[in-house]
């Protein structure tokens, strides 16, 4: 048995965060827990403004990333280790911190309010939205019912459970091809279903995938339905060019077709673009004064950890400016 131990490599730092308080009027309230949120938190605390943070989980997509090789300062670091370091950098401050609950609604006004799943309403002079993105779903029959029963979104997590089984991977980008490679090592067969006439993944990944003999790629095909009662049994695939439908017998389907922004909480509050992302200007200002946004949830091009972190810093400085000039 080949074993690894994926440790975050912690430093011993005194944790100084305090519980978020619904009676306090914060200068800046950050909603989210990824790199943009945590960077914004550090910048706000260093500026000395009263800061709070609400997040369901810490790390966002980085926590689900196996290794990161393009965050400066680390040639190679595990996603969870990077998150741990971000978190430790925040925890040295007496920031109002609430983890484990989703913020459900942002209410605009002179004093802004954030409605939270814990039943409280939190108040602040300014808000930074850094709620990131989540996996995009196919929205086909059977998908919701069979999620966790053969419909999967995390290949590194779930690939070991599909040893000696037949699986489909939907998508043609980097995450889809990485998933297909992970699965090809274990599964009996892997069928990649791609809407476009070619794959969009990096060449190194496509080359690696082509080494496997148990992988089939269906170009210009789309998923029509996922079938099964208590587990996935088959998937209907539509051949767009030849206008034919085909049902494949599989036990698993990994959906790797990108991400959608978590903007439900600011719907009808700030302006969104055609992709549902929050439109920001170069100072991370949204269409509403005092509401800022940063990271993958925004219209900023290129979703990268280092970009999200930089945007978080910028949003924090903009929010601090806003608080100081609107006393």
């Amino acid at each position: 048995m080949e074993l690894t131990f994926n440790l975050p490599g912690l430093e011993t730092i005194e944790q100084r965060t305090v519980p978020l308080d619904s009676k306090t009027l914060y200068d800046v309230l950050i909603v989210g827990g990824g790199p943009a949120a945590l960077t914004a938190a550090v910048y706000c605390m260093r500026k000395g403004v009263k800061t709070g943070l609400i997040t369901l989980d810490v790390g966002g997509q980085v926590a689900e990333t196996s290794t990161v090789e393009n965050y400066m300062g680390y040639r190679h670091i595990e996603g969870i280790s990077l998150v741990q370091r971000f978190k430790e950098q925040v925890e040295q401050f007496e920031i109002g911190f609430l983890q484990g609950y989703r913020a459900t609604r942002v209410i605009d006004g002179n004093i802004k309010k954030v409605e939270c799943e814990d039943g409280n309403l939190y108040q602040a002079k300014s808000i930074i939205i850094t709620t990131g993105k989540r996996w995009r779903r196919l929205n086909v029959p059977g998908e919701a019912e069979l999620t966790g029963k053969g419909v999967a979104y995390c290949a590194i997590c779930d690939a070991p459970l599909f040893k000696d089984k037949d699986v489909i991977v939907v998508g043609g980008g980097n995450s889809a091809i990485e998933a297909a490679i992970d699965l090809a090592k274990l599964a009996t067969s892997v069928t990649v279903v791609q809407l476009l006439p070619s794959l969009t993944a990096d060449k190194v990944l496509i080359d690696e995938l082509s080494k496997f003999t148990n992988v089939t790629i269906l170009y210009e095909h789309e998923i029509k339905a996922i079938h099964g009662t208590s587990a996935v049994e088959a998937v209907t695939v539509h051949d767009i060019k030849n206008k034919k439908e085909n049902t494949l017998s599989v036990q698993g389907i990994f959906i790797e077709i990108g991400l959608v922004p978590n903007t439900e909480l600011v719907k009808n509050v700030v302006a969104l673009n055609e992709y549902g992302e929050i439109i920001i200007d170069c100072s991370c200002r949204t269409s509403r004064p005092g509401i800022f946004a940063a990271g993958d949830v925004t219209s900023v091009p290129y979703k990268q950890i280092i970009i999200a972190a930089g945007e978080g810093a910028k949003a924090a400085l903009s929010a601090c400016d806003y608080v100081l000039t609107n006393k």
Partner: peptide, 10 residues
Amino acid sequence: VTLTCPYCPG
């Protein structure tokens, strides 16, 4: 869990 799942320990 599986041992390659980053959010299972949570």
